[in-house]
Every structure is written in C-alpha cells, then in structure tokens.
Amino acid sequence: MTISSLVPVQLPKQLQHMKYKVQYRAPSPPPPGVTRTPEEIEAEIKKVEAEYEKLALVFIELPQDVMWSEPPVICQWYEPRQLWISTYINDYKFNEDKLTVQFRTGVLWPIGIATLRYSNMPFQGWDIRPDPNSPGVIISVTGVCVTATWLCVGNTVRLRWIANATTPALTEHFEKPYSVKKMIQLMREAACDFFPDFDAHNHIEGSCPKEWVAERHTYHAMAFLSRAYNFQWSRWNVSAGSRNIVMQIREAVDRKREAKFQLLHTTPQRATILKCNELSQELNLEPLAGLQFYPDLFTLNMSYGSVDARRAAFNMKYKLVETVFSMLQELKLCSYS
C-alpha cells in the first residue's frame, strides 16, 4: 500500500486554550476650556474604536428576579488577589427599558453584577397603622426608588405590595406568610434591601443614628400600641439630633373619628407631645401645656390616651407585638428617615 492511497482522517474540532489579556482605558474627556479641532476629535474617536476592537464585547440580559433601581456595577473576579475588580471594563452601556448591559473587557474572567445595597435609603417616609380588615398591623416604607408595604399578623409578616418596581421581582412572595428573618433574606436577595446593618450610617448620607437604647425601647412601645395608633415619619426627625426622636402620632381606634396628627417627642429620659406640629415653621421642643412627666411612650398612652387606646394596648397579642417590634428594629425607621 502506497502513501498516496491513504485516506486523510479529519480530527474532531476542540477548544484550544489561548492567552488573552488586553488592558485599555478610554481617555478621559478634556478639561473645561480646552478646544479641539474636528480633525483631532475624529482622530481620537478612530483611535478609541480601534482599541475597542481588540476587546471582547459582552452583552447580558439582566435577570427579572432582581430589582434594578440603578445601573448595575460590572466587575470581574481576580483570582490571584481573591477580589472583584473593574479594571478591564470599558464602554459600559445600560439599557433601562430593556434591562440589558453591554460592555467590553480585556480579560475573560468570571463576571459579576453588583448593585448598591442601600440604594433605597434614607427613607422618604413611613407609616404604621392597624389593618382594618384583619387583627394585624400595616407597615409601609417609602424608599428612594420603591415603596414596600408589609402586613404583620401573629408571628408572621406578609409582603403586600411594592410600588414603582422595575421588575416583577418578589411578586411571587406577595401575601405569603414568612418569619421576619426570612422576609429580610428574600428582599436582600432581590436587591430590595430596606434593612440597614449596624454600620449603615457610614454609607448613607442624610441619616441620623439615634441613641440605640432609647430607639429600641421606643420601637417596643410602638409595637404595643400599633393596634391603637397611627405612627408616621416627621420631617423634623433627622435635624433633631441623635438623642431626640420625633414622629407624628394619632389615635386610630375609632375609624369614624379620625384625630389629627400630633408630634411625639421621645428622648432617653421622657416622652411627650409637642405644641408645634408637622406644618410649623420651625421645631419647638416645648411640650403641651399641663402635660405631666412620662418616662416613655407606653406610660404616656396610659394617661394621655383614650380609654379605647389604653384597652387596645392590653389586648395586644404577644406574638404580634414581637413581630412588629422585630420589623421596626430591623428597619430602624427613626435613624434613617
């Protein structure tokens, strides 16, 4: 048999390892006042396009189970130092309508998509009131991007609604009972975090961390009275300082006779109702005339509240009190609104 009679055999195609690494950063725009000729601008554009051609073009459709309130941050995993970097990311484009990202990269490392954890803070407003259709308590919090509403019933909390959401994330969990811990986990996984950590004030502008013992005690009193009162945020709270908590309060026992909101002022030493209100020109911490000394909100209600409001506090179920308290403690409404 001669060599010419042999039939050539086609080897199967297979992936071959190839080193690829291109580091490029697009030039920054010229400083203000510097003028360039059209020829210079065109030459620079062509140069940038030529460099971009060397980079890998990546197109990603963002998942719908995450709320993309702001453009996500693209990063890549740098194995030698065990950290995420964005050194090789160029020509980043985010399509808010189609929820897609496009960018060029000079390395084919694992890609990560990150969001700002506290993009919904500081809170723009909040409201706590008894649910008229169940023996529960409604907590509604308005963030920078979305508004979340929960219903606390017994030892469970239900996500009722999320307004202004950019994706259908979390809709599958609406009206389903969860523990407070599980609810926090679900919302954080969907990049809809309303639950700041102990050091969140270092990352959020416009917050005013309150004295923690007084804040925690106030949350417990609010939980006890959550079926008798309607609590709302006050614009005076942030500027009041760390030892002063200011919020709006009114009785909500009788739906037919809806009272007007008053300003509640609590400190580590006392709780009182202020003379001024939310619409006053300036905050005046002078209490109502004739109001006695009350060490906290609960004792204030025992003397200042109506008979129905006092009775409602003693009729509260322990499980509901602890659920509302846990939610308030995790939300930290007084420190971040």
Rank of each mutant, 00 (worst) to 15 (best):
228 A>P: 12
230 N>K: 14
233 W>D: 13
234 S>P: 13
235 R>Q: 14
236 W>V: 11
239 S>Y: 03
239 S>F: 01
239 S>E: 15
241 G>A: 08
241 G>H: 14
241 G>W: 11
242 S>D: 10
243 R>I: 05
244 N>H: 15
246 V>T: 10
246 V>L: 00
246 V>C: 02
247 M>Q: 08
248 Q>A: 03
250 R>A: 04
250 R>S: 07
251 E>M: 05
253 V>N: 12
254 D>Q: 14
254 D>R: 15
256 K>Y: 07
258 E>Y: 09
259 A>C: 05
264 L>C: 06
264 L>E: 06
267 T>K: 12
267 T>H: 09
269 Q>W: 07
275 K>V: 02
276 C>L: 00
276 C>M: 01
276 C>H: 08
278 E>N: 08
279 L>I: 01
280 S>K: 13
281 Q>C: 00
286 E>C: 03
286 E>A: 03
294 Y>V: 01
297 L>A: 03
298 F>I: 09
299 T>S: 10
299 T>K: 15
299 T>V: 06
299 T>M: 05
299 T>E: 07
300 L>F: 06
301 N>I: 03
302 M>Y: 10
302 M>Q: 15
305 G>C: 02
308 D>K: 14
308 D>S: 09
308 D>C: 02
313 A>L: 02
314 F>H: 10
315 N>K: 14
315 N>F: 01
315 N>H: 11
316 M>W: 06
316 M>Q: 13
319 K>S: 06
323 T>A: 00
325 F>T: 10
326 S>R: 15
326 S>A: 06
328 L>H: 12
329 Q>W: 07
330 E>Y: 09
330 E>V: 06
